[in-house]
Design a protein around this nucleic acid. Structure first.
Length: 948
DNA sequence: CGGACCACCTA
DNA sequence: GTAGGTGGTCCGG
């Protein structure tokens, strides 16, 4: 290790951009609606560098006002760049503030780019005997690398690589780092808008450098080139030289290197903490405090003589050598504790893990005994697949202490597996031990197949996070990385990519199963501790305890129950459709004069608009194709049979492929029923979603489509299907929340709400409302819920834009409180960054104060819609929980099968029909008390179509 | 074979 | 204009 002084120069914007885009799919939004991705990304990198390297000299360099020299040279310099994203612009002042509080010098020079500042400083520092590390992902810096100047480059997936001369020689295939300038000049750089030589990319540039050594060398020897390349290079010599100049980092910026100014001082920890907390950086705050208030380790990781690629040291790397050295229980546990703390002290941010598998027999009995003494345990089942109806248990992991856990492997033999689970039954069925898990619905369904009923209080980390931040994704890997800064073993690492050669969990060696499974339980336990507090802060504990957790068990039951499907009926429907589709096909091919793929919008567009020229100026999609969307085509339908045929073809094909043919394939062999999977954590408003198959979008609007519903039938002839629908629930909610008396009265009097609205806005007696007036009123009523615009309304009706606008204005005059309510929601969102439902379910709207009117408009519509849609979701969830509870309590044979947002479908045992009718209607209508009565319509039938 | 894009099904 | 899911084509690794 050299004791030479080291200077770190951080390329601020490059790291800010990198941080911002790293979170782009999953931006960090705090409760004030601020996008803090860029700040967090940058601070993570900076702290990481400081922690790893403990530099004694450091500065952060910013651009200011761009490079005036380069713009003089080349007008278009960086002209291609998209405007800086808002999330980055707002981040910069915060970062300045944080850097000041950290006592880190900031280097900016008006009219120079950070590259130039860093380059100049690096060269000056080199003269004074420093080793300089340029912290940047930008490969342009490679031109500055020397014996004493290195690139310190973050790599994707974590960690850094150091580029010295050998690395640069290898990466760019050059002998001297200065040739990187020639390389960039030849190849160009789209993001900096350096033009480069036309037709020259990475490969050709490297070839030229090997052959001619430099741009000038190339231009002087173009006679050695041939063909098109010769012409192009000769014609663009000037451009090449200019590009080279643009790519050259300037070394004459008027900045001084005074070592004293760059010394890394101790930060104002309190100040930084304060800023971090105001930004709601919980983990970063901890991390920061840990880094700066403990004794810093003295080792330096970077070898300054030989550059090496480093990989990020995850806590995993620090695992104990083997679980065997620790025994399961009793006194030994304390020695574990000692080891842990000893270890923790040594490395500050790592934690060691004690994961152990439990052998059959006595060890298992002892383990269960210990398990039963706990108050709260996290568990995670490992199975042979993702379908709970067919998957078998491979093992169960348990953890009740951070960093520690046990794995109980399951035998393949079914009887033996059942014997083992019986030993664990007292735990799962204990009312007093809390069970923690990630996506417990899955584990509960698996255990139900082993006849285990999971009882007691639950805590599902996925559900908790859904309430804390509904817009994010909630899988464990994301949560672990976000909240624990931890990357779990990936499942593909264990069993391979899906498809060919994928292993079953059963085939994974026991040690690996243990590591993986217990890690999941351990992480979930840690996440629980994290989320527990946040639920309280978001005021959403009650929603968690009283709605989402109980609902999880309801959904598990519904999914296990499945629904009966008449396959034969669908098969005959498929034949009919086949016939009709091929007839349409023939007619279309005939008119088109050739055969083509009608299902390909690309091919269809060419036929309709180029060959048949049905329109003068065809509409294009954003990707430049002809648009053949439904609304475009139906416009032409009245004039062209082929258009009508195409639309029919599409409708029927969709029907056939998505429903008629797909549904029978989804029937589960073991139960002969269809089992959908309800997703409880995907819809940002609080609704459920359904997949595999989606039973929430079975056709109903067209005669042809709704036939599919005939295929959903009762369990057997002793049963009947019952569908219970909330009538106009969303309109009732908006009427109640806005306290709009006219509308409330209409609902109280049981009026036809759309006719009532029409009567008022068109000023005619309710008995004289025409069909068209009612229809337009209905459209506006729905439009209100979605956040209307005159544009949208006129698109959906026969009204012109101005007529639509007038209708909306009259509507607001008729229902003034409704309008006031909508503005109130938007204002609330602006002030608080979120809106909420009747039960306090929040939706955060980060764009509500955006300067971009389109973006802001969308957020404003969300502010109106989310509380309405979400409250309706809350209400039906309450009804489901209560109904489920009553069905269970009285041991009814009737079962709740499906939920379709405002409708519940039941398999009703005929002798229970009267009881069911009143129970369901009453529970649904009384699920939540509003100033508007809720109304539920019931229908029964021998299939889902009849029950409607 | 996975992802982007289009089209179309529901409340 | 809100909220979802699925299937088809097409393109690129």
């Amino acid at each position: 290790m050299s004791d030479q002084k080291r200077l770190f120069l951080v390329d601020a914007y490059a790291l800010i951009f990198r941080g911002y885009y790293a979170f782009i799919k999953n931006p960090r939004i705090n409760s004030k609606g601020e996008d803090t991705s860029a700040i967090m990304g940058f601070m993570n990198s900076l702290l990481d560098v400081i922690k790893r390297e403990r530099p004694d000299h450091l500065a952060v360099c910013f651009d200011k006002g761009g490079s005036t020299d380069r713009v003089e040279m080349y007008q278009d310099y960086k002209a291609n760049r998209d405007e800086t994203p808002e999330g980055i612009k707002t981040a910069v002042p915060y970062i300045y503030e944080i850097l000041k509080a950290m006592h880190i010098p900031i280097m900016v020079k008006e009219g120079y780019e950070a590259d130039d500042v860093i380059g100049t400083l690096a060269k000056k520092a080199e003269k004074e005997g420093y080793k300089t590390f340029m912290v940047t992902p930008d490969k342009d810096f490679a031109q500055l690398v020397s014996d004493n100047i290195f690139m310190y480059r973050p790599v994707f997936g974590g960690g850094y690589e150091t580029w010295g001369i050998p690395e640069v020689q290898k990466k760019f295939e050059v002998t001297d780092p200065l040739q990187v300038i020639d390389y960039l000049g030849m190849m160009g750089d789209a993001s900096d808008n350096i033009p480069g030589l036309p037709g020259v990319g990475d490969k050709t540039a490297k070839k030229f450098l090997a052959q001619f050594g430099s741009m000038e060398g190339l231009l002087a020897n173009t006679d050695q080139l041939k063909g098109k390349m010769k012409e192009k290079v000769e014609a663009n010599g000037e451009l090449g030289l200019l590009s080279k100049k643009l790519a050259t980092i300037m070394l004459d910026v008027p900045v001084e290197f005074n070592a004293k100014d760059f010394e890394l001082d101790h930060p104002d920890v309190e100040k930084v903490k304060e800023i971090f907390q105001s930004l709601e950086f919980r983990r970063l705050t901890d991390n920061f405090v840990k880094t700066f208030s403990t004794e810093a380790p003295t080792t330096n990781n970077t070898s300054t003589t030989e550059a090496k690629t480093e990989t990020k040291a995850t806590p995993k790397a620090q695992k104990s050598a083997g679980a065997g050295q620790f025994s399961l229980f009793g006194g030994d546990a304390s020695s574990n504790e000692e080891t842990v703390s000893e270890y923790t002290r040594k490395t500050a941010e790592t934690s060691s893990h004690f994961y152990q598998s439990v052998s059959p027999g006595m060890a298992t009995k002892l383990f269960v005994k210990n398990l039963m003494t706990q108050n709260s345990v996290c568990f995670d089942t490992e199975t042979t697949g993702l379908n709970p109806l067919t998957a078998e248990l491979v093992g169960i992991a348990f953890s009740w202490e951070v960093g520690k856990g046990f794995y109980v492997p399951f035998p393949e033999n079914k009887d033996e597996a059942q014997e083992l689970i019986e030993e664990l039954r007292p735990f799962f069925e204990s009312e007093t031990i809390q069970k923690i898990g990630q996506n417990l619905k899955y584990d509960i369904k698996i255990l139900a197949k082993y006849n285990i009923d999971v009882k007691g209080k639950l805590f599902d980390t996925m559900l908790a996070h859904y309430l804390i931040n509904p817009d994010m994704r909630h899988n464990m890997d994301v949560l672990a990385e976000t909240y624990l800064n931890y990357t779990p073993i990936s499942i593909t690492e264990l069993i391979g990519k899906k498809g060919k050669n994928q292993l079953s969990m059963r085939e994974v060696p026991l040690e690996k199963q243990t590591e993986y499974a217990v890690e999941d339980a351990d992480i979930t336990l840690q996440l629980k501790e994290h989320f527990e507090k946040e639920l309280g802060e978001a005021n959403t504990q009650q929603l968690f305890d009283d709605i989402e957790l109980p609902l999880l068990r309801v959904l598990a039951d519904m999914e296990l129950e499945g629904i009966n499907l008449d396959k034969d009926f669908l098969n005959s429907l498929s034949e009919e459709l086949n016939n009709d589709i091929s007839n349409l096909e023939k007619r279309i091919y005939n008119t088109a004069g050739e055969e083509f793929n009608i299902a390909s919008p690309k091919q269809l567009g060419v036929i309709l608009f180029e060959k048949l020229k049905l329109v003068d100026k065809p509409k294009k999609t954003k990707t430049g194709q002809y648009s053949t969307a439904e609304d475009v085509l139906s416009y032409l339908a009245k004039d062209h049979q082929i258009i009508r045929d195409v639309l029919d073809f599409r409708g029927l094909s969709k029907l056939k492929s998505t429903y008629v043919d797909a549904l029978p394939l989804q029937v589960e062999d073991s139960t002969n029923r269809v089992h959908t999977d309800y997703m409880q954590t995907v819809a940002a408003t609080g609704r459920l979603s359904s997949n595999n198959p989606n039973l929430q979008n079975i056709p109903i609007r067209t005669e042809r489509g709704r036939q599919v519903r005939k295929a959903f039938v009762p369990r057997n002839e002793d049963y009947t299907l019952l569908a219970a629908d909330y009538s106009q629930i969303e309109l009732r909610i908006i009427a109640a929340l806005s306290e709009e008396e006219t509308m409330i009265e209409a609902f109280k009097n049981g009026e036809d709400i759309h006719a009532s609205t029409a009567s008022r806005v068109f000023n005619v007696p309710i008995s004289d409302v025409s069909r068209e007036q009612r229809s337009n009123a209905k459209t506006v009523n729905f439009g209100i819920i979605y956040g209307v615009s005159a544009f949208g309304l006129s698109n959906q009706t026969d009204l012109s834009r101005s007529e639509a606008k007038e209708l909306i204005d009259t509507y607001y005059e008729t229902y003034p409180k409704l309008k006031a309510y909508m503005s109130k929601q938007v204002d609330f969102a602006r002030d608080n960054g979120y809106v909420q439902t009747v039960l306090g379910r929040r939706r955060y709207l980060k764009d509500i104060n955006s300067r971009n009117a389109v973006v802001r408009g969308a957020a404003e519509r969300n502010a109106v819609n989310a509380p309405i849609q979400g409250s309706a979701a809350d209400i039906i969830k309450i009804a489901m929980i209560n109904i489920h509870q009553k069905l269970k309590a009285s041991d009814y044979k009737s079962k709740m099968l499906l939920q379709v947002h405002d409708e519940l479908v039941f398999d009703v045992y005929k002798p229970e029909l009267d009881n069911m009718k009143s129970l369901i209607k009453s529970e649904m209508e009384n699920a939540y008390k509003l100033s508007v009565p809720l109304d539920v319509e019931l229908d029964i039938g021998d299939n889902w179509l009849e029950a409607h």
